[in-house]
Amino acid sequence: MQSNRTQQAATENWQKDLAALIDNIRLPSFGGVLEKFLASQCHFDTMLMVTFKKSLRPIILHPTNPAEQSLTLHNYINRAYILDPLFNAIQEGNLGEGVSRLIDIAPDCFETTEYYQSCYKEFDLIDEINLVIELDSKVSCAISLGRRISRGTITRAELTRLNDIYPVIQSIIRQFWLSQSQDYVKYEKSEGAMKQALSSFGSGVLTPREQQITGLILQGHSSKAIANMLEISLGTVKVHRKNIHTRLNTSTQSEIFTLFLAHLKELEPAATI
């Protein structure tokens, strides 16, 4: 009997949280109310909601309070995002709408990349669950729910609940964007040359194929994965990697990443015009 009352109370709270979310679609408080609603369905430690658009940098929809935005988050939004597996999966059309985990979309050597070690690892997450919603033909919204080591990875029951409520979240987020997008797009910053960062890195030093492979290395793909993606032999990839280090005067992936960050910094003036 007590169990039935507890279950009924949980259902009523879920309904109240959903009603509150709908009531806040046109209000600045929407992000916080959405976080509360999702917390009733799945345990998480951090929530980030951003929009991705091919010609523009990501826009933070939540949290909008600067006090809640870490230096690591600012570094991600300003330049490191172009090495983010989620960003690249969306941009390349490899990830459609729905619920997914970072582990399912990240390159096979993602955790060995300098991006992971110097940026992503700073978020101190063991698991990341992403809800991706297409807002229009050019813009996607991603809601990332992060879980720290102390909480552990997401459970099957939680993942099922997120998949069950996804259609509702999808519809509500689209309505939110229709009513509030103008409050955010005025802060958009044009990428300018940023969108060419990976393809232009090493220009004049590396061959086009070496530039392509360098970009894949920075994103976290192993030599075997690169060989499969480019339909070339593993031995050819290894030769390219050796040539890349010779031409860039590097010996480790960490040194390549340092050069890439310097390259990004050179592009910043063009990216903020």
Results as ranks from 00 to 15, higher is better:
R156P: 00
A89Y: 10
K121D: 13
N243A: 08
S144E: 09
A262E: 10
I244D: 08
L261Q: 14
H62K: 12
S254V: 07
H240Q: 13
L73V: 03
A197T: 01
F37D: 05
N65Y: 04
E128G: 12
H263S: 01
L86K: 11
T51K: 08
A106K: 06
Q8P: 01
V239T: 15
V239I: 15
T207P: 04
E266Y: 03
I256H: 05
S200D: 09
N24G: 05
H263R: 02
E158A: 06
L21Y: 10
E231Y: 04
V237M: 02
F87A: 13
T64P: 02
N65F: 07
P66W: 10
Y76C: 02
N13G: 02
G215T: 09
F257K: 00
P167M: 07
N4G: 02
D164V: 14
A262I: 01
I129Q: 09
D108V: 06
H221C: 01
E188G: 05
L206P: 01
G192D: 08
W177Q: 05
T214L: 11
A80M: 11
F123C: 10
T11V: 15
A197C: 06
D45K: 10
N4A: 14
N94C: 06
E191R: 15
K224D: 00
L216D: 00
H62M: 11
E68F: 11
I59M: 13
P107S: 05
E12A: 14
T207V: 01
P269D: 07
I256T: 08
T112L: 01
G235H: 03
V237G: 03
L162Y: 03
N75T: 05
I149A: 14
K54Y: 12
T207H: 04
Y120G: 05
T112A: 06
K138E: 15
N249L: 14
S199D: 11
V50D: 11
K195V: 07
V33Q: 11
A39M: 08
L71T: 13
I213A: 07
T258N: 13
L21M: 15
E122P: 05
D127A: 08
L261F: 01
F87G: 02
G98M: 10
